[in-house]
Design a protein around this nucleic acid. Structure first.
Lengths: 124, 124, 124, 124
DNA sequence: GTGGTCTAGACCACA
DNA sequence: GTGGTCTAGACCACA
């Protein structure tokens, strides 16, 4: 499915949240489709079911998934709002880094050039 | 001096490291100038001296400050290398956010526009 | 496990770092194997858990070990880089002593003879 | 005269001991010659007289210097024993580093080659 | 007075 | 149970 890193400072349940959210937002998991159960996830990734449960609860809270008692858990039908929120957050993160770079005296053009380079690579 | 947030996910000693490093790299604290003692810092911010000590040790290790046994702690004389490292790290952070934005389908021009706006604000 | 000296000029946490690092680099502790917990170490050696924690944090930072939140601490999987760094450091130390001996007028052959004797002893 | 580094972890009084001892053992300061007074040293190097005093006491204890009350402090007349001790200590240090290198699997020839290179450089 | 180390013990996030 | 952070307070080397 995907890899869990046992790296320090990055809790497993947060990695789970991030990766599942990513798969949902990128369309790998389609809206109103069922996702694997807590047990399946746990045994597949060899991690504690409590950890999976914690990640799922957070995904439900964020509106990325919803659970139907007795039937399982599904990808949310309307993801637009979540994508919007996510994008806003990343914009803020990006500008926060950019601000630090301004403070260090890095020129604007260097930043813009780096971003354009990133886009070009993505289009290859 | 500056404010410490008591958010559990942002340890006090890391906030200290970040804020002092920022003041040093921005030139608020001048090279080879003494910084307040462990005890002064602790009482000023109403935190434990050990917590300050932990932050200071890390700043020493990073080369931002150096301690002189029995005399106190001083801002490092040569900060160029550290500024370089810091800038590299921020570039990577910025591109990481930008990459997420690409994946979400945000157009390049929006990112660049945001960055240009940030620079303009800084120049007001 | 091993002995801790209470010499004031050789902090306990540094002794811990050195001894654990040695056991790791010599292969006594195998890669990706768990090492005893902070609390076990502390009670075994009759020292404070904080002191063990300090040593462990440094070992993590050096890449000798890594900690998994909630699960414990493990020997790093890839030690090659660290062994290389360690060897470089010891070469410099050795040459530093050798240089002092040159300055004192000790003949080169005496040094080389001593080193060859050391290797022969190791091969017995 | 010489430079004092305000580096962490290397007390000023120990730097003094090392540098004066070096000058004596290398013959820069001749046997039974007077050395500068505590006051002269302190003002010359801009350090605390107590610190100089502490270094001088240690040098006396080691037999490198001797003080004549009312007349000052002099380089010892017979330095052979001290040179011998110093050399023995450096041999042990060198072998200690060499031993670590053996443990890390470094070949003997590399060590010997490094030492020979050091001697050649010294003879240039 | 200044930094560095250590102990004792509490509390929290995570699994 | 495991690691990480923090407080309170002691003691030491150094200047």
């Amino acid at each position: 499915m995907f890899k869990i890193s046992l790296n320090k400072n990055f809790p497993i349940y947060e990695q789970l949240i991030e990766k599942i959210e990513e798969m949902v937002l990128l369309g790998v998991l389609e809206p109103d489709t069922a996702i694997p159960s807590v047990r399946d996830f746990a045994s597949e990734l060899a991690i504690n079911p409590n950890t999976v449960q914690k990640a799922f609860s957070e995904l439900d809270k964020r509106g990325v998934t919803y659970s139907v008692s007795g039937k399982g858990r599904f990808v949310a039908g309307d993801l637009d709002k979540i994508i919007k929120q996510k994008a806003d957050k990343h914009i803020l993160d990006m500008l926060s880094s950019a601000k630090e770079l301004i403070n260090l005296g890095i020129d604007k053009d260097i930043l813009i050039h780096e971003i354009e380079r990133l886009y070009e690579e993505g289009n290859k």
